[in-house]
Design a protein around this nucleic acid. Structure first.
Lengths: 105, 105
DNA sequence: ATTGTGTTTCGACGATCATCGAAATAGTGC
DNA sequence: GCACTATTTCGATGATCGTCGAAACACAAT
């Protein structure tokens, strides 16, 4: 996970609407959720939802799979784990442990 | 941690320059880093850095403390932990464990 | 082929952002 | 007060974003 990719994913999650979409998908679990279901749950126009979904897909946080006429969306858990891993790694590794952080002057 | 606040912090980290600034501060540890030191490390104009720093401070991810004429910046670790906690909580709690995710129809 | 439903693309709008140099401010020391 | 350094604010520019409705597209059933 390079910093550019991490920034892209963080930016994708950094919009209230998109974060809510993503949370909805994650909570839906492995079964995923149809686009229309997400739309009903959140009550946002289809075009807006499609736009946000597209951005989430571009960053690899969400995947889609066709089932007849409906599109099933799923949160991509490994991607999320990678992102959280980056944050913890880059940012907390040698810092969240106070005993290991202060050694220099 | 509400979803609005989380989105704000994610957005703040969702810019490559800002993410790099933040990472630099986190890696600096509890001692923090002067604004000028960050500027030298990353080689970005002072006004641009100040702008990004301001945004990080607004979201609570970074704090500042005066020391004579220089401003020491520090990563706010609890804030980061809260954000990571939100992500793991909202997103992985009942999902990363496949056994607990699929119960509804 | 036509109809019907689910979803995306198009086009547009105002809003916000990222970037920078120049100018202003904050604080120290004389 | 004056000079000096560290940092922020101002102002401007081009770029991207978020939102929406209308129209187009994909797929299935008849």
């Amino acid at each position: 996970m390079n910093i550019e990719q991490a920034a892209k994913q963080l930016e994708a999650l950094g919009n209230p609407t998109r974060l809510e979409v993503y949370r909805t998908l994650v909570r839906a679990g492995a079964n995923g959720l149809a686009v229309s279901s997400v739309q009903q749950k959140l009550g946002i126009p289809a075009s807006t939802l499609s736009h946000h979904l597209h951005r989430l897909i571009l960053t690899g946080l969400v995947t889609q799979e066709r089932q007849a006429t409906t599109l099933i969306c799923r949160a991509n858990y490994p991607a999320m784990q990678g992102l959280v891993g980056f944050l913890v790694d880059e940012c907390c590794a040698d810092a969240c442990m106070p005993s290991a952080a202060d050694d220099a002057a």
